[in-house]
Simulated assay, not measured.
Amino acid sequence: MLGPRPRSSTSATSTPTDFEDFVFDLLQTIGFVNVDWRKGTPKDASPSDRGRDIEAHYLLTDVDGHQRFERWFIDAKHYDKGVPPEALQGLFAWAQAERPDVALVAASGFLSNPAKDWVEQYRRSSAPPFRIRYWERPQISDFLAKFPELTYRHEIYEQDAMRPLAEIQAAETAMYNRRWYDKSLTRDHFVEKGQVEPLPDDVREAVLTARKQIEDELGADTLKVSSDWEAGLWAGKHSALRWVLGDEWDNLDT
C-alpha cells in the first residue's frame, strides 16, 4: 500500500486526505489540466464531493490534428486492505448521471477481488457511457519512476528502496554534529600546544554548551574518533548525505 512510515512497508501518505493530495499532484504532473479537488471542506472528511474526489480534463489530439478534452472523474481510495465493491458505487452512480468520459479509481494499494468482479459485472450489465479505469500500486509506482520529484514532495518510498527525506535530513544533522564535535576537540588540542589562540570566554562557553547538547543527544561514547580512517569515513558519509539533499560533492564544511 502507498502510505507513510514505518519503513517496513511501501509508503506514501498517511491519511485519505494526504493520498488525495498526492493524486491531485500526480494528475497535474502527468498532464491533466483544470484539475479540481472537490474536497468541499478543510476537514479530512469530504461529504460534498458528489461521488468523486477530483475532476480533471485531459487533452487529446486526433490524427487530423483536432484537439479535444476528455473529462475524468477520479476517486482516490486509501485503504489498508483491498478496496471493497461498496466503495466504488458512489463514483459510478454520479458518473452514470453526469456522463464523464472516464471514471477512474486511484487506489493506494489494490482493489479487492470482489471489487474487480463487481466492476466487470457493472460493465456488462449497465453498459456505462463512460470508460472505467483503475490505477493500483503497480501503475502508481510506474508513474513515480517516471516522475521522481513526486517522491520528494510527498515523501513516498518503496520498501527497502529509499529512506524518507526527514530521515536523511536527520542523519545529515547528526553527522554534522559529530564532525563539528570532533573538530572542536582538535582545536582544544592545538590551543594547548600554543598553535592557535584561545576562544573568547563567551564563545568558549557557547562551544561547551553545544558539546554537552551533542553528547546528550548522540551519546559521548559514540563521538570518539579512533583513527584517521574513521574520521575519513565520517567525512565521506557526510558528503554523501549532503549530495543526496542537493549540495555539491565534497562539501565538508562544519
Rank of each mutant, 00 (worst) to 15 (best):
residue 7 R to S: 13
residue 8 S to P: 05
residue 8 S to H: 12
residue 8 S to C: 10
residue 9 S to W: 11
residue 9 S to M: 14
residue 9 S to A: 15
residue 9 S to G: 15
residue 9 S to H: 14
residue 10 T to I: 13
residue 10 T to R: 14
residue 10 T to E: 15
residue 10 T to Q: 14
residue 10 T to N: 13
residue 11 S to F: 11
residue 11 S to Q: 11
residue 11 S to Y: 13
residue 11 S to T: 12
residue 12 A to G: 15
residue 12 A to M: 15
residue 13 T to N: 12
residue 13 T to R: 10
residue 13 T to I: 07
residue 13 T to W: 14
residue 13 T to H: 10
residue 14 S to M: 10
residue 14 S to C: 10
residue 14 S to F: 11
residue 14 S to V: 11
residue 14 S to I: 13
residue 14 S to P: 09
residue 15 T to A: 09
residue 15 T to C: 09
residue 15 T to L: 08
residue 15 T to K: 04
residue 16 P to M: 13
residue 16 P to Q: 14
residue 17 T to L: 15
residue 17 T to N: 13
residue 17 T to I: 08
residue 17 T to K: 15
residue 18 D to K: 08
residue 18 D to A: 09
residue 18 D to L: 05
residue 18 D to Y: 03
residue 18 D to H: 12
residue 18 D to R: 07
residue 18 D to C: 08
residue 18 D to S: 08
residue 18 D to V: 06
residue 18 D to P: 02
residue 19 F to Y: 14
residue 19 F to I: 13
residue 19 F to C: 11
residue 19 F to S: 08
residue 20 E to F: 01
residue 20 E to K: 04
residue 20 E to D: 06
residue 20 E to R: 05
residue 21 D to N: 10
residue 21 D to P: 01
residue 21 D to W: 03
residue 21 D to F: 02
residue 21 D to C: 06
residue 21 D to A: 12
residue 22 F to P: 03
residue 22 F to M: 04
residue 22 F to S: 02
residue 22 F to N: 00
residue 22 F to I: 01
residue 22 F to E: 00
residue 22 F to C: 01
residue 23 V to Q: 04
residue 23 V to F: 03
residue 23 V to E: 04
residue 24 F to I: 03
residue 24 F to H: 08
residue 24 F to R: 04
residue 24 F to A: 04
residue 25 D to I: 00
residue 25 D to Y: 01
residue 26 L to G: 00
residue 26 L to E: 00
residue 26 L to N: 03
residue 27 L to C: 05
residue 27 L to S: 01
residue 27 L to H: 03
residue 27 L to Y: 01
residue 27 L to V: 06
residue 28 Q to G: 14
residue 28 Q to N: 11
residue 28 Q to H: 02
residue 28 Q to M: 05
residue 28 Q to L: 04
residue 29 T to Y: 03
residue 29 T to D: 03
residue 29 T to C: 09
residue 29 T to E: 10
residue 29 T to G: 07
residue 30 I to W: 02
residue 30 I to K: 00
residue 30 I to F: 01
residue 31 G to K: 05
residue 31 G to R: 08
residue 31 G to Q: 05
residue 31 G to L: 07
residue 31 G to S: 01
residue 32 F to V: 05
residue 32 F to Q: 06
residue 32 F to A: 07
residue 32 F to T: 00
residue 32 F to I: 08
residue 33 V to P: 06
residue 33 V to L: 10
residue 33 V to E: 14
residue 33 V to A: 12
residue 33 V to G: 07
residue 33 V to S: 15
residue 34 N to M: 10
residue 35 V to Q: 00
residue 35 V to N: 01
residue 35 V to Y: 02
residue 35 V to E: 00
residue 35 V to M: 01
residue 36 D to C: 09
residue 37 W to D: 03
residue 37 W to Y: 08
residue 37 W to H: 09
residue 37 W to G: 00
residue 38 R to F: 06
residue 38 R to K: 13
residue 38 R to W: 07
residue 38 R to Y: 02
residue 39 K to C: 05
residue 39 K to Y: 05
residue 40 G to E: 07
residue 40 G to S: 07
residue 40 G to Q: 06
residue 41 T to H: 06
residue 41 T to N: 07
residue 41 T to C: 10
residue 41 T to K: 05
